[in-house]
Each structure stands twice: as structure tokens, then as C-alpha cells.
Simulated scan of single mutants.
Amino acid sequence: MHRALWWKDFEFGDGVVTVKKTGARLRLDPGLVGEVLSWFPFYFVVEGWRMRRSSRSGPKIWFAPDRPRPWYLIWSVLHAAGARIAKSESEADAVFFFDDSTISGAVESPASARAINRDCQSIAKSHVGTVFEQCFGYPLNVDPTQFTGELVRKSEANGAHDGQIIQGPCAAEPGFVYQKLIDNSIAGDLVEDLRCPTVGGRIPLVILKRRARSDRFANSNAGVEVVETHTVLSASEQAQLAAFARAMQLDWGGLDVLRDKSDGRLYVVDVNKTDMGPPIAMAMDDKIRVTKRLAAAFLDFLHPSAALEQRTRS
């Protein structure tokens, strides 16, 4: 089993699970219990990869300041790639700066090791909106005191999932960002998010996440579909998203992208440098396929020859 005592990351009390690192609070209800039980089969698949490949000579990755837990996407990708978590920083082939915090401090890394996400120090929603406008040429963030009509209010904090549609103009509250309301609705009274896993600026595939319009800001999905990147993003849009990832200094992560039905434009509404996944609602075969695809992309990002070796071994 995974040797890190990951269950100590949580506090339980009064029917609520609290994530110690971020302070996020989850109601311990049948839905949450069902999601956890649905997650375990994939966890055991990845454990099998880890045990079979732990003795192989894959790249060694050191994580700082935190070590990824099994529900983070990089944990399953790491083991699918045949990579290993380094025992010390000095032996690492790469140093992955892994921190759930919205704003992280600068961290030093050995000159000999590849640095991943070292300089991605802010994923605050206001910063994401500023960088987005610089790269795409049109705004996402709005001034609520000057905006008339429906807008979205969100916490600046990572992983809050507390978006609300409110009416402007209104006073700006500290700790919140205000964004244009994107019409990403599709048939069936659903909304659709484009989760774009990003490795070195490249998007190997896109995960379409669909949920009821009434649950548009929730963290659960009514359906999930994996598609090839070129089927939903043009070449120029992929180039814009790559430029955005570079501007965010994001080497690895997930971009939450919405396409506005009214004008066809893309909007990057969130950046995840410690993204979770694969999504619970995804079929097991798709979870395995997505993880292996991202593992190949991760190895290619670290070293092209290592990626070739991994694909041959698989």
C-alpha cells in the first residue's frame, strides 16, 4: 500500500470532512461516501502499477513542499509512467513543486534537476483573469461596481467551488473575484466544461465534464467524455492556451476552459497546479487510458527518449 498515511490529511467531525491543507469542508453524506467507494477500484489498479514498476529504473521525482496523495492526478500518472518518488532531493531527476496553496512562496531546487511548476506561484482567480486577458486579448474578470447584469462571484482560494451568480452592479467583497458569466450550456439543460490537462504547454487530450445547469459550480459531474484535442480546440486555440500556460509558468496542471455559446470564444476560468483525477464519473477503461496517455506526455516532457522507452514497455 502507499506508505504515506494520507488519511491523516483529513479531520472528521459533526458530519463534515475538513481538508487540513486547504481548509475545504465537505459534508459527509451518502453522495460523498459513494464517490470514495467508486474511487477505490482505480486506486488499486494504480497500486498494482506502482508495485510492479517500483524496481525499474524510471525517472526519480522529488516533491516539495508536499507529497501528492493518491487522489491527485500526478500520483497515478507517475506510477503509470514507471517513475518513482525520490528518497531525497539530491538523487532526483526532477523536482516537482507541489503545493495546494493558492499562493506559494519561492523554493530553491538543485541546479542538476529539472524543475516542474517552481515558478507557478499564484493561481488566485484574479491573477488567472489578468494573465488570461493578456494572452487572449479580451477580459474574463469584471469590476462589479461598474458591471450591469449577471456576473459570477468566486472565492480567490483554490478548490473552494463556491461560485454564485449575482446581479451587478454591486460592492466588491475582499477575498472574492468577479467574472463574466459564460454561457457554456448544451442540450439537456446541462453545462459543459473543457478540462484540459496540460504538460509542458501541450494538451494531450480533453475531458468534457458535464453537469446540470443548476449545479454548474459543483465538483461532481453528471457525465464525462474523453475526446481528442483537435476535435474541440483549433490549432490557434491550442497555441493560445500554450501561451497562457507559459505565462502562468505552469509546467503541469489542468486548465478549466469554457466556450461561450454566444460568441464562440474560450475562457480559462481556473488553473489547477495540483489537479485531482481522473474524474470519479469517468469509466474505468477511460481512467486507465487517460492516465497512460498523460504518463507518456509527462515522460516526453521530462525526456523524449524516456517516453519512447515507456511506450515500448507498455
Rank of each mutant, 00 (worst) to 15 (best):
P197Q: 07
L250Y: 03
L208H: 02
S90Y: 01
W62P: 06
R69G: 01
G31Y: 00
Q179P: 12
P70C: 02
G168R: 05
R195Y: 12
L250S: 00
R211F: 02
F98E: 08
S262M: 08
S262C: 11
A160W: 04
D9S: 13
D66P: 00
L73C: 02
V142I: 15
Y72E: 15
L258F: 06
S104Q: 12
A86V: 07
E133Q: 13
P278Y: 10
V177E: 14
R3S: 12
D99N: 15
S88F: 00
I165A: 06
E309P: 00
G254E: 09
G223K: 12
N219C: 05
H127S: 10
P110W: 11
S101K: 14
G82L: 07
D93I: 09
A81P: 08
D183P: 03
A115D: 01
N272M: 01
R213V: 13
G48R: 14
R3P: 07
A92P: 07
L151G: 02
A94K: 08
I288W: 11
P174Q: 11
F96L: 04
V177Q: 13
S236A: 11
V290A: 14
G149R: 11
T274A: 07
V19P: 00
S54R: 14
F176I: 02
E173A: 13
R311N: 08
E237A: 10
A281L: 02
V224W: 02
E237R: 08
F12H: 06
A297Y: 11
D270W: 08
I165G: 05
H230K: 14
E89Q: 13
N184C: 12
T291P: 11
L266T: 08
V206G: 05
K20G: 01
P139E: 08
W75A: 05
V19I: 15
F217S: 07
A4N: 10
K287C: 08
D251H: 15
T22F: 08
